[in-house]
């Protein structure tokens, strides 16, 4: 007799995606609060840059409107991608609830991915609205700020989402060894903001740092998707970049599977 895992793998995955999306809307006050306040994170950057532009010339390839577009897109992507999967997994491990996941028809990696996807879909729906308002208000009109190549943007965004998910899964699995992981999660978030170009466009960092970052997975999370929206380059230009991102996502996934398999041996139900 086939197990539930082999009989219904697809449906279980999409059921979790659907439930996760619905869970996001279960507390409307949460959604409303974030909906109205998330653009504020971007406003600080915008008004600071606007004030700077009044006294100093901004970089010629990044005028104020383009920087506004850059930051509003960056924060929009962050709101959709950043699920705190690591903290969720950390608490599952610390409280011993991870043992329940071992009995489910999805392995933990796919279960967490389904949850993150559901959340991301719901967030994309809710945050696209204020995101568009931001672009229209500060970017100088929507028409000229449609993605330069929608297909490339979608591929780059999907790759960025997967890479961030895998990095968060890694931090989550570290809880098998450290008990508490939310400071690590916070550190990853901070590093990601810096190394993925969310705080300062990577092209403004020193050359040596840019060259080093070009080999790492971080720019694929935010910088590449944002650039693929802004820069009108042909698919040939983006193909190797996207390929590199895909390789990083696959590599991180494989490493996580090995690491998780190793870490799981430490599990003794309560206390991870």
């Amino acid at each position: 007799m086939p197990s539930h895992r082999t009989a219904f793998p697809g449906s279980a995955f999409w059921t979790v995606v659907r439930l996760s999306a619905r869970e996001f809307t279960a507390y409307p006050s949460d959604v409303l609060l974030e909906f109205f306040t998330y653009p504020v994170a971007f406003l600080g950057y915008y008004f600071f840059l606007q004030a700077i532009a009044g006294v100093n010339p901004l970089p010629p390839d990044l005028p104020l409107e383009r920087l506004a577009l850059y930051y509003s897109l960056g924060w929009l992507l962050r709101m959709i991608f950043h699920q705190r999967t690591d903290v969720g997994m950390g608490s599952l491990i610390a409280q011993g609830d991870i043992a329940l996941l071992l009995l489910r028809p999805l392995d933990i990696s796919r279960w967490m991915l389904a949850q993150a996807l559901g959340q991301a879909a719901a967030r994309a729906l809710f945050y696209a609205g204020p995101g568009i308002v931001l672009l229209a208000l500060f970017g100088g009109g929507l028409g000229e700020y449609l993605p330069a190549n929608p297909l490339v943007f979608c591929l780059a965004a999907a790759t960025g989402f997967l890479i961030l998910f895998e990095l968060q899964m890694f931090i989550g699995a570290l809880s098998f060894f450290t008990t508490l992981n939310f400071q690590m999660s916070w550190t990853l978030d901070m590093l990601m903001r810096l190394l993925a170009g969310l705080v300062v466009p990577l092209s403004l960092l020193p050359e040596a740092l840019q060259s080093a970052l070009a080999w790492l997975p971080f720019p694929h999370v935010f910088s590449i998707p944002i650039r693929s929206w802004i820069e009108p380059q042909p698919l040939v230009f983006w193909a190797p970049v996207l390929l590199q991102g895909g390789v990083w996502a696959a590599l991180l996934h494989l490493l996580n599977r090995r690491f998780y398999g190793f870490a799981l041996k430490r599990l003794d139900i309560f206390g991870g």
């Binding site: 600071f48 901004l58 916070w186 705080v199 300062v200 403004l204």
Partner: peptide, 20 residues
């Protein structure tokens, strides 16, 4: 790790202000 994360957090703001 908490100490590292706090220093990184400040670094973000310093880098942003310093660049522009």
């Amino acid at each position: 790790v908490g100490l590292v994360s706090q220093l990184t957090f400040s670094l973000l703001s310093i880098v942003f202000v310093g660049v522009f």
